[in-house]
Each structure stands twice: as C-alpha cells, then as structure tokens.
Amino acid sequence: MFDTDSIVSLNNRIYRRRQRFNRLMLALSGFTVVSGLFWLFWIILTLLIKGGGALSLTLLTQSTPPPGAAGGLINAIVGSIMMAVVATLIGTPIGILAGTYLAEYGRRGWLAPATRFLNDVLLSAPSIIIGLFIYAVYVAQVGHYSGWAGAFALAILVIPVVVRATDNMLMLVPNSLREAAAALGCPQWRIITFICYRAARSGIITGVLLAVARISGETAPLLFTALNNQFMSWNMNAPLANLPVVIYQYAASPFEDWNHLAWAGAVLITLLVLGINIAARSLFRK
C-alpha cells in the first residue's frame, strides 16, 4: 500500500518549488519589460528635450545652412522621401513575388529552404555591407554618387523584410481555402491572387510598412551611395541629401546650430518610425 501522507508531502514540496520558480520567472519577466520601456521612454524623452526646441516651420521650409546661418532640413527630408519611395517600389514587388514562391510553389525540394536561409542571412546582414556592395557594382562603375545608388541599397534592405512577411502570412492561410477553390476549377494563380493575397493582405502590408520604417534611419549604406547634398535637388542621378547622413555629419560637427538641426532630424525620424509602427499594428490588427 502507498503511504498517502508521504505522497502528499512530496507533492507539496514539488508544488512549492514550482511556485517559487514561477514567481522568480514572473519577476524577471516583469523587470525586463519595465527595463525595456524605461530605456525607450528615456531615448524618446532625450530626443524631445534636445531636439524639440528646434522643431519649427523653418525646419520644413529651408535647406541645410552653412555654419552660423539659419536653415532647415527640407532638402534632406525630400531626398529621404524620394529614395525611400523608389526603394519601396523596387523592393516590394520582388519581396512579395519571392515570398509567394516560397509559400505557394516551393513547399517541396531544396530551393525554398535554401532561399529562406539566405534571406535570413540578408535580413540580419549589417547595412554597411549592402552599401559597400552597391558602391562596388554601381557607384564605382558610373563614377559618382547618386540618389539611384542610395535607393538601390535601401531596396536590398526592403526585400528580405517583405519576403519574410509575405512567406509567413501566406503560410498561415488555411489549405482548406485553396482546396475549396481548386475543387471549383480555379487555377493556382487565381487562388493566390484572389484568395491567398486577400487573406494575408494585412500582414503583407504590415511587413512593407515595417520595411519602410527600417530604411528610414539607415545611414551606413547611404554614406557609400547617395552621400549628401547641401542644396535642394530633385536629380536622382546626382548626390542627394538625406536625413540620416545629415544627422551623422551635423551631430559630429563643432557648430552648435548644426547640432540642434541634428537633434531635430533625429526627432523627425523617430516620430516617423514610431508612427509607422503604430499605424501598422493598429490599422491592420485583424
């Protein structure tokens, strides 16, 4: 016969040990959450304190000034928008088509797993390597920096994010939807276009927005591709001003007015990235 008292005592010891371990893990988890939020709010608060005072109408209407003169960041803002738009238009279709192949056509064989692995490597690769690559294959060949080169570098950064988002979202679409459409005689390209894309639309769009948020603050690839331009320019075939490089150069300068503009530019990028992330999670929550 079993000793009921000893079993109960043993279970109580196991329960108490598990309870202590659970409380410890809850405390550690809560600490990490509070720590992460603390640093996030500290960064945002520092940006607002340092750069909030420089936010004005002049910032959005005048070009970057010489030392000791008043000016703004309109040329850098326009240049960043131009390159981000071109990069998104180039990288998004490639990323969506590649992700579609991985999820819909590459379920058998070795090509899809190999492509996913290489895509993850590209996703985690330092952006400066992308900038050096575009410098070697484009800038060095044409002999000058340009907005096109910057857009190409940013497009390469967009592609792996969109590929991963498209692949993951399409894999979540139930196979029963595909089978039902196929049973009605629908070809596979129609199944993908009218059923799978519509079911995964919110996740794919969220991935595109997150890719845009990522490239908005990239500095390293633009130093080797677009460089900078102190004046307003709409010519993508010439050096083009952009916010990340302006922030990098002005923050390291000895001129106080340039330092203020650097903080203001950092605030603009932070608010842009924060707004895109909030919009991606609120508008496409379903």
Rank of each mutant, 00 (worst) to 15 (best):
D3A: 13
T4A: 13
I7M: 13
R17W: 07
R18P: 00
F21V: 12
N22A: 14
R23L: 14
R23Y: 10
A27Q: 09
L28E: 07
F31N: 00
V34E: 05
V34F: 07
S35E: 14
S35Y: 12
S35M: 14
F41Q: 05
W42I: 10
W42A: 14
I49E: 09
G51N: 05
L59R: 00
L59M: 05
S63E: 13
S63I: 05
A69T: 08
A70D: 12
G71V: 11
N75Y: 01
I77Q: 03
V86H: 04
T88M: 09
T88N: 09
G91V: 04
L97C: 12
T100S: 15
T100Q: 10
G106V: 11
G106F: 06
L123D: 07
A125T: 15
I129T: 05
I130Y: 05
A136S: 12
V137C: 06
Q141D: 09
Q141R: 12
A149W: 02
V163W: 02
R164G: 01
A165R: 02
T166N: 10
M169Q: 15
M171G: 02
V173H: 09
N175K: 12
S176F: 03
L177A: 12
A183E: 11
A183R: 10
G185I: 07
Q188M: 12
R190L: 12
C196G: 09
C196K: 10
A200P: 07
L210N: 09
A211N: 07
F224D: 04
F224E: 07
W234D: 01
W234C: 02
N237V: 03
N242R: 00
V245E: 01
Q249I: 10
F255R: 07
D257M: 11
D257A: 15
V267F: 02
I269N: 11
I269G: 09
L271P: 05
G275H: 03
A280R: 02
A280N: 05
S282A: 04
